[in-house]
Simulated scan of single mutants.
Amino acid sequence: MEAGFYHQPVLLQEVIEHMQIRPDGLYIDATFGGGGHSRAILSHLGPQGRLVVFDQDEDAYRNRIPDERVTFVRENFRHLERFCKLHKALGADGILADLGVSSYQFDTAERGFSTRFDGALDMRMDNRAKLTAADVLTTYSEHHLHQLFQDYGEVTNSRTLAKTIVTLRKAHPLRTIGEFKSLIQPIVKGNPAKYLAQVFQALRIEVNDELGALKDLLTQSTAVLKPGGRLSIITFHSLEDRLVKNFMKNGSFETVEDNPYSFETPPKVFSLVTKKPVTAGATELKENPRSRSAKLRVAEKR
């Protein structure tokens, strides 16, 4: 499987530029995917440099780079600190995470990530995990489904959607994307492609606990990076971006209001390298439409 086919890395030049790679440095790519970012980092590393990569996906593992400077950890990046300790990779010069679903995952029908194909309602990033999208749709309560579609997908009629699923699922099978799409077809609002994308995003985030995993990654990055080490995160939707922005700025996940009368200012863990998120330029947008929602934020550990 060719890496280029597997996944076109977004904001590649911008990532490399902001990471300021040292030839003898230690770097972590928390989302190996097709290895595009990893290969670019490796090309800037000398013989003493080292790269630790994480990916829970079996297909990504099959695509790994045969290079003695690379350590592949086939685990979710939420276990970052534990495995960096295990592989003596604390005190890193840089951590990168590209939170997008790889093009390969989207384009492989049986993975169930895309609304374009009919496949199993799966959506697991790690096929060793138990929970699938079908499980969510067939077992979650109406209230739980409503919250999920509202919070993770910002679906306009999330309450109606949840009610429809719970009412109809007793009599209708919900194993495949086709079955699910035909079940909810009468209540789709606005642009069907956009609506389904929001619904699928919500299910994917739930199945993989993506926001929980991101919080774990961000929290542990402070213990893994050395002072002066850089944290680079590429997000694809506002839920992720808000967590990254708040964490880099305030060291917490909540939005902290600047209060001129407050005497308590918690110590800042990071200095912002990018004041505003870096986005794709015209050439990349033309070559890779999936880059249009990508935002890169970079911060340096104090």
Rank of each mutant, 00 (worst) to 15 (best):
A3E: 03
F5R: 13
F5P: 01
H7W: 04
V10D: 09
V10P: 10
L12T: 13
V15R: 14
I16R: 10
I21V: 14
I21G: 03
R22G: 08
P23I: 06
G25D: 04
F32V: 00
G34S: 11
G46V: 11
G49L: 07
L51P: 00
V52L: 15
E58Q: 14
D59I: 02
I65V: 11
P66W: 01
R69M: 05
R69C: 03
V70W: 11
T71C: 13
T71I: 15
N76Y: 04
F77C: 09
L80T: 14
E81W: 02
F83A: 09
K88L: 08
A89Q: 01
A92C: 07
A92P: 04
G94P: 03
L96K: 08
V101P: 07
D107C: 05
F113S: 12
S114C: 13
S114I: 04
A120M: 13
N127T: 12
A129V: 00
L131T: 03
L137Q: 03
E142C: 07
H143V: 10
Q147P: 00
F149V: 02
D151T: 12
D151C: 09
G153N: 06
T156V: 15
T160D: 07
T160K: 09
L161F: 06
K163T: 09
T164A: 07
I165A: 00
L168D: 04
L168E: 11
R169H: 04
K170M: 01
R175G: 13
F180I: 05
S182N: 08
I187Y: 04
I187C: 05
V188Y: 02
K189T: 15
L196R: 05
A197C: 05
Q198V: 08
Q198E: 12
V199D: 06
F200V: 10
Q201T: 11
I205Q: 09
I205A: 09
V207F: 05
A213L: 00
D216R: 11
L218E: 01
Q220S: 07
A223D: 14
K226R: 15
P227S: 05
P227T: 06
T235F: 10
S238G: 04
V244C: 02
K245N: 07
N246V: 01
F247L: 04
M248D: 00
K249T: 14
F253D: 03
T255A: 13
V256W: 02
N259V: 09
Y261S: 12
T265E: 14
P267D: 03
K268W: 02
L272T: 09
L272D: 03
V273S: 06
V278W: 05
V278D: 02
T279Q: 14
G281Q: 14
T283A: 15
T283K: 15
L285R: 15
P289R: 13
K295W: 06
